[in-house]
Amino acid sequence: MSLSREDVEKIAHLARLAIREEDIPKYAQDLSNILDLVEQLKAVDSDGVEPMAHPLESSQRLRSDEVTETDERSRFQSVAPKTEAGLYLVPKVIE
């Protein structure tokens, strides 16, 4: 399994990582090695085995519909990169 430069660029875009041009060959190599490792799963006969998403074979617990939280905006926004008028500010989003 060998990933191309384009594969790496596509994955990096999906993951929103600005991988540097000069790092691409190294990523392609490392990721290909990891995929080689993973490749051995393909040989396993797992027909009819139910996928296991979770160690616990139990079901979701339901919360009662109650408001338990209060306004803590100023505290939460004290760790934000940029805010104004109670809003988080980001570079202009164009739809």
Binding site: A85, G86, L87, Y88, P91, K92, V93
Partner: peptide
Amino acid sequence: HEDFHGMTGID
């Protein structure tokens, strides 16, 4: 998308 110095505000 109102103008916050050319930025977008998130609520």
